[in-house]
């Protein structure tokens, strides 16, 4: 039964992707991309990746859609035709590569084959030793925050740099001439139903975000998902109440402090480990009992990840939302 459902979902993914590429209306493309992400999240869930499904649902279907929409507000909603001359070359290249890629899969192990090379390397070590070393059951969180903590630190810095980059590009001073339209500052205040429903949802979204943050060691979740969920709650608030009210509640400086604080917290834990005589990000030296020490270290760095991701996503959203659209001359 699951296999039929999986086949159906995968086919639906291809259909959605084709529809996204075909449509000339970028608003429709964005909405379809959101559906695409949601389908992808269900697929991840069927493939046993609960943590990834949670991330894809929060980030792919939620935040990405909002950021695309705010970019559309600043550009234009319609696509004006493709480059006709290169179209057939592109079709030939794409079809050839698809055939090559599919023929490349012929000799790969079947889906779910336990003897596939990918399952023989370090994964068994992670599965066998997480309980003894960390004392909690979620292996994904253990690998993310401890076994491969360096990677995650790098990813947090990439998110940090991207947020700062967006800020540099979009927060630059704009002209004030008549070509800049007056911004509507009202949000959705004049719509009763979104306000009522949104107002009810936001506290529960924040609560769920905090649950995902602090229960990440025992169930699906962790800093990345929690950061995205909390950011989504604040973005919903900003959409409902308008930019000005939202920035009063959560200022740009506070967002910046979250990004910097989160990444610094992560790095600082590593440095403290070194000062205590261990190696960088080896949490076991933090306290007397190495298992408790690792748990404490992981909770702190997950908090750092959550803060940095939440701050970065919010800051990116507000960079787009605060910019005035230029009146199109054409």
């Amino acid at each position: 039964m699951t296999i039929v459902f999986a086949l159906f979902l995968l086919t639906l993914l291809v259909v959605t992707a084709l529809a996204i590429v075909r449509t000339k209306n970028l608003f429709i493309a964005t909405m379809l991309l959101s559906i695409f992400s949601l389908l992808m999240a269900v697929n991840f869930f069927i493939l046993d990746a609960a943590d990834v499904a949670l991330t894809e649902a929060a980030v792919g279907a939620g935040v990405t859609t909002v950021i695309f929409l705010s970019a559309l507000r600043l550009t234009s909603q319609y696509e004006r035709g493709s480059l006709a001359s290169s179209r057939w070359i592109a079709v030939i290249v794409v079809v050839t590569t698809t055939v090559l890629l599919i023929s490349g899969t012929i000799n790969t192990p079947n889906l779910g084959d336990p003897n596939a090379p990918v399952h023989q390397h370090v994964a068994p070590f992670y599965l066998e030793n997480t309980e003894a070393l960390m004392g909690f059951p979620n292996v994904v969180t253990a690998v993310l925050s401890s076994f491969r903590g360096y990677d995650t630190l790098g990813e947090v810095f990439v998110v940090f740099i991207a947020a700062v980059g967006v800020m540099f590009i979009l927060d630059a001073r704009q002209g004030t001439g008549p070509e800049y339209e007056l911004r509507v500052e009202k949000g959705l205040k004049h719509h009763l139903i979104p306000r009522a429903v949104g107002g009810l949802l936001i506290p529960f979204m924040l609560l769920f975000g905090l649950y995902v943050q602090f229960h990440g060691e025992y169930g699906p979740g962790g800093g990345f998902q929690a950061g995205a969920i909390v950011a989504t709650a604040f973005i919903l608030h900003a959409i409902l109440e308008g930019e000005r009210t939202a920035l009063k509640a959560f200022s740009r400086n506070a967002q910046m402090a979250l990004i910097i604080g989160g990444s610094t917290l992560y790095g600082a834990v590593g440095v403290v480990c070194m000062l205590k005589g261990g190696t960088f990000l080896d949490y076991s030296v933090l306290m007397e009992d190495p298992v408790t020490a690792r748990q404490v270290g992981i909770i702190i760095i997950e908090l750092g990840v959550g803060m940095a991701v939440c701050g970065a996503l919010l800051s990116i959203f507000h960079s787009f939302a605060a910019r005035k659209p230029v009146a199109q001359a054409k």
Partner: peptide, 13 residues
């Protein structure tokens, strides 16, 4: 998991 979050950050850039 980490690539998804990095993906949205680079996409917004």
């Amino acid at each position: 998991l980490t690539a998804i979050v990095v993906g949205v950050a680079t996409l917004s850039l």
